[in-house]
């Protein structure tokens, strides 16, 4: 699965174990709807393949505005709605030199501490 728009790209590979998602560029959307829909599709695919964990690589992600942050929050909400034994966790890989990532993902891990881990902080 892939979503590529002006300025950013999101690629998802469910054939790997664990499944991998890579976000790159600068995600600056004006409305969250389409990204929310995309993450909904990713969620369905991950549930469909029985994933226990997904790795989300943000190391090439230059920026994420708050409107683009909402679909990530919504995605975690979808996982949280699954029966406990059907949930998968999300491991974010961040880059130290991208200074916005640590506090941003730190806050996201406070929102969903049982689902989110942050690597590289």
């Amino acid at each position: 699965m892939e979503r590529a728009e002006s300025g950013y790209r999101i690629r998802v590979d469910c054939t790997q174990s664990p499944p991998q998602m890579a976000m790159s560029g600068s995600v600056r959307v004006t409305e969250p709807g389409e990204l929310k829909e995309f993450f909904g599709q990713v969620h369905s695919a991950l549930v469909g393949c029985g994933a226990c964990e997904v790795v989300v690589d943000l190391r090439d992600l230059d920026f994420l505005n708050s409107t683009a942050f909402k679909p990530l929050v919504h995605w975690l909400g979808l996982i949280d709605q699954l029966p406990v034994d059907g949930r998968y966790t999300v491991r974010f890989r961040i880059a130290k030199e991208r200074h916005w990532q640590k506090p941003c993902l730190g806050a996201l891990s406070c929102f969903s501490p049982l689902l989110v881990t942050v690597e590289g902080a």
Binding site: H74, L76, G77, C110
Partner: peptide, 13 residues
């Protein structure tokens, strides 16, 4: 942080 996380919970809905 608390109000940020509260808003995230609301955002999910």
């Amino acid at each position: 942080l608390q109000v940020y996380v509260e808003l995230m919970h609301e955002t999910a809905r």
